[in-house]
Design a binder for these strands. Sequence first.
DNA 1: TTGCCATCCATAGCGTATATAGGCATAGTT
DNA 2: AACTATGCCTATATACGCTATGGATGGCAA
Lengths: 109, 109
Amino acid sequence: MPRAAGLPPGTLSLLILRVVRQEPMHGYAIAQKIRTLSSDQLSVEEGSLYPALQKLLANGWVKAEWTTSETGRQVRSYRITARGLKQLESEQDDYQRMADAIAAILQST
Amino acid sequence: MPRAAGLPPGTLSLLILRVVRQEPMHGYAIAQKIRTLSSDQLSVEEGSLYPALQKLLANGWVKAEWTTSETGRQVRSYRITARGLKQLESEQDDYQRMADAIAAILQST
DNA sequence: TTGCCATCCATAGCGTATATAGGCATAGTT
DNA sequence: AACTATGCCTATATACGCTATGGATGGCAA
């Protein structure tokens, strides 16, 4: 099966960090935020999301705490750390360089 | 080792097709072209390039013929096909949609 | 009150794509 | 003769997201 509507490899942690930077959020909400912000163009599957969050936790880029959502449910809320902010900046720069480089080729005569 | 200076997964065939669209080119030249067009930002390793070219051949997106280069060496020159042009268009559209979607998230308030 | 669906967390195993590390060959340069 | 650049290619490793699966909670409709 081809990567039909998935998201480009290598960008998942970038997107998560970017979304969580705004405000602490639980996993399910992160996935939905990415979906809506991208006008349904990008979909983060849960089987991708939670392992990615574990990685972010292990690297100390986010920290998690169990809280109660507005609907009264127990949810695990992820908050970006100082190191996470640095990482976000770094990944965003890398991505931009790549995107520019690819654009240069796609626009070459 | 992390993906330090490699190129973003999913874009290799797109870049190859785009470069070969201009003029038939042999493998080694394709790699160099991508490197120079991207100002050394993207590097295509030969171990990635040739398997990718095999895939393009198998899909009928390029055809190859052995020719003699200007330096007198036997080289395998790859030329894009009509189907390859369609594929290029499709992949470029996909890439653009993704890039736009990611940009939307990275630029969100 | 039962059944269904949305929400919510998480792991195991798979598939796909690229990178690493090699092998082989020619030709020009030093 | 040795070294470097050019040139083609394969086998293996590895990274990464996806599929499939499992479980739990709670609202709502039949």
